[in-house]
Computed example of a mutant assay.
Amino acid sequence: MITKLGVASVFVNDYEEAKAFFIDKLGFELRQDVTMENGFRWLTVGPPASPEFQLSLTVPGPPMHDEETAASIKALMAKGALSAGAWNTDDCRKTFAEYSARGVEFLQEPAVRPYGVEAVFRDDSGNWYSLNELNEQALDQDAMAEVFGSQSP
């Protein structure tokens, strides 16, 4: 049985640029940085509060992708069409202020939502992330279905 998510991946344009963004701007920690025999670089970072979680920073290309696939992924990144997930925080407004001061580009300032307070930011590769301060209703399926006007299955 699966117990939790250990590794998630995000596509980035440049390993060093992405590493600096996540460590210097978001305050993440370096988890792994090794290059395998086939040339694949396994670069992972993670938030200090989640020491078992690794975010894999992956540049599209060999050996994982052929040139055509890598070009397609890079085109989607350039358009800002990829969402890389949602990060939780205890205080969205405070985190927004800290990250803004560090140069993080926000697409949306903190706003009250039915599930809490949310801001949206972009990394240096064009991926966007939701930054959430969740409230008590956020994980209540029935409450969210009622707020958003849909039925629970």
Rank of each mutant, 00 (worst) to 15 (best):
E105F: 04
E68D: 10
P63D: 00
H65N: 13
F96Q: 11
K94V: 02
A75M: 04
K25S: 02
T89C: 05
P51R: 07
F11G: 02
F21N: 03
V34C: 09
L5W: 01
G61Q: 06
K74G: 02
S83K: 08
L5A: 02
P47Y: 02
L30H: 12
K25L: 02
D33C: 09
E98R: 12
W87C: 05
V45I: 08
H65R: 14
A71W: 15
M64C: 12
P60Y: 03
A97Q: 12
D24C: 13
Q32H: 10
E29L: 15
V12T: 04
K94T: 02
A75W: 15
R31V: 08
T95K: 05
D14W: 11
F21C: 08
W42G: 11
S56W: 13
K94N: 07
Q32W: 03
G6Q: 09
L30S: 10
E29F: 11
E16W: 07
T95L: 05
T58P: 14
L57P: 07
V10M: 15
L30F: 13
E98D: 15
L43S: 14
N88T: 02
D66K: 00
E98H: 14
A78K: 11
A70F: 08
T44M: 09
K19L: 11
A49K: 01
F40Q: 12
Q108H: 11
G85L: 02
A49E: 06
D90K: 13
D91I: 05
G46C: 06
L82K: 06
L76T: 10
D14L: 06
A71R: 08
F106H: 00
L76V: 03
G39M: 07
L26E: 01
P48L: 00
Q108R: 12
V7T: 12
A75S: 10
P48A: 00
T35M: 03
S83M: 12
A81C: 13
M64N: 15
L5K: 01
D91G: 15
